[in-house]
Amino acid sequence: MSTALLADGGAAREWLIGHGLNLTILWDPADGRRFLLGLALTLALAGLSIVLSLAIGVAGAALKGSRFAAGQKTVAAYVEVFRNTPLLAQMYFFFFGVGSLLPMVVNEQGEQVRLLGSFGWAVIVLGLHSGAFQIEALRGSIDAVPRSTVEAAEALGLNRLQIFRQVVAPLALRNSLPALSNSIAQTIKATSVAFAIAVPELTYACNRIWSDSFNVPVMIQILLATYLLLIGGVSAFMRSIERRLQLPGGLPA
């Protein structure tokens, strides 16, 4: 149903309200727009955070497996900090702590604002938080590639880069897909924490709607159902990739 689809459908609207379904997002244009904007921001926040976390995961896994002791220690410290502190505390630290140190700029409305807003900080924090888990997933998958396979590639005359690109990386990718799928689902759920720094994502939008329309039970169910559909769709997509990339003779995904 599009926004305000039931705006003129008095009978249907009254029937829904009479059955305890005060779905203002269907007949109130303002509530409908707030809900759709919140959904769009949640998708954008999740997508950007997942891309950032994957980039961090690849770079971190490469550094952790390198011969540079300083790089290994830096990655290890980063992983420990972000895996062992609450996401909400990280969000507050970067937004209120680090964010307050940034210079002020003038926005399009002529107002003085910080250089980086709440949406930008939410993307960075979610990416950093999820990236710590991606590093461990990717590094573990790389280490799981049998040494005999690498030695066979060396015997064929492949150099280190060719071995990684043509042998280790494809096998590691297959090994890491279940962990990556779980991390992506966790990132989508974690977008709701951006509510704490006033990013108008899905949870924030639903909170404003039920505060104004007094339909808390209905909007909470809508909120949970929306997240369930989002994460269920992503999980189904990732499972299909796992099945497509499954090696012959391997265990079924």
Rank of each mutant, 00 (worst) to 15 (best):
Q134G: 09
A169N: 00
A153T: 02
A132V: 04
Q186W: 14
P200Y: 11
S148L: 12
G127L: 05
W121F: 13
I188T: 11
G127K: 13
S176V: 11
R174K: 07
P146L: 10
P178M: 08
I197P: 03
L128Q: 09
P200C: 02
L230F: 14
Q112V: 11
D212F: 14
E136S: 06
S141I: 01
T226A: 15
S213G: 02
R139H: 03
Q134K: 14
V125M: 03
R160N: 13
L161V: 14
G110S: 01
S118G: 08
A194P: 03
I124P: 07
S176Y: 11
A137K: 13
E108V: 06
T191D: 02
R147H: 06
S130M: 01
L228P: 06
L229S: 09
L173F: 14
F164K: 10
V193C: 01
L116N: 06
P170C: 04
L177F: 12
L180N: 03
I135A: 14
S130G: 04
S213V: 13
A194W: 04
F164S: 10
Y204W: 04
A155K: 00
V113G: 14
R139K: 10
A155T: 10
V234I: 15
V113N: 12
E108T: 05
L173H: 09
F195A: 06
W210N: 01
I231R: 15
G233W: 08
V125W: 04
L126D: 04
S183N: 10
S176M: 15
N175G: 07
F195M: 05
L156Y: 04
L126C: 15
S192E: 10
I142M: 09
G131E: 08
V199Q: 00
S176K: 10
S148A: 02
S141P: 08
L202Y: 00
I231N: 13
L156M: 07
S141M: 07
V218A: 08
D143E: 07
V199P: 06
F214T: 04
L171N: 06
N159S: 07
G110P: 02
D212Y: 10
R114F: 09
G117N: 09
A122G: 02
M219F: 09
L116M: 05
M219R: 02
S118Q: 02
V168D: 00
G110F: 00
V234D: 12
L102G: 05
S181V: 11
P146K: 07
R139S: 11
I220K: 05
G157Y: 00
G157S: 05
V168E: 04
A190I: 10
Q166E: 15
L102Q: 01
I163N: 08
S211K: 11
A155E: 13
T226G: 14
P178V: 12
